[in-house]
Amino acid sequence: MRWQEFSVRCPELAAAARHRFAADQLVLLGTIRSDGAPRISPCEVDFAAGDLMLGMMWRSRKALDLRRDPRLTVHSLPADKDNAGGDIKLDGRAVEVTDPDPRERYCAAIEARIGWHPTGDYHLFALDVEHAATVRFGGDEGMVVRRWRPGGPVVTEHRAG
């Protein structure tokens, strides 16, 4: 499901992801290479036109991976080994965005964030969320995992640290 619907169905995980991605301004993007091996790449994300958008340089390897096989993972950047802010992980599929209106809204969002906007050709994908999870460590609760899949509730699991 697209970001806007995910935000309605799972507001607490969507809010955590939005906050974390805005603070970090960079995520780790997992894609599948043509030989089937995993690829991890840094990627900026922006929220525009009701979607979580991933913009990429024209013909970059990660963009070509997604055009061939849209499965992906978006993972927050851990600040350090303790990662007090926790992890956010979203799994799903990339949907290539070619319509001018959402592309213009993406350009406005990235320009508002960093004072720059893409020129020339670039790839733009929206995330279709199929699974979401947060993991937080520390405190009296130990490790707290919150998971969601479409059709189900958010499940919270406490594990000893």
Rank of each mutant, 00 (worst) to 15 (best):
L13F: 03
A133T: 04
E104G: 09
R103S: 11
P11D: 04
T134W: 12
L54M: 12
I114K: 13
F47H: 11
D99K: 14
V155Q: 08
D128P: 03
G92C: 06
T156N: 05
R149L: 09
A109W: 15
L52C: 14
C10A: 08
W3H: 05
S41D: 14
Y106P: 02
R18M: 02
F47M: 04
P153D: 13
K89T: 03
V135H: 06
F125C: 08
A160I: 07
Q25E: 11
T98L: 14
V144K: 06
M143P: 01
L127H: 03
F6T: 03
A48Q: 07
M57T: 03
M53D: 12
I40C: 15
G92S: 00
A108F: 14
E141Q: 14
A49C: 02
N83K: 11
P11L: 00
C43S: 14
D82L: 15
P78C: 12
W3T: 01
P70E: 03
G36M: 04
A48D: 12
F21H: 04
R20I: 01
E141Y: 05
A48K: 01
R18N: 02
A17S: 04
H131G: 11
I88A: 06
P118F: 14
A79K: 03
V74N: 04
L26G: 02
R9V: 08
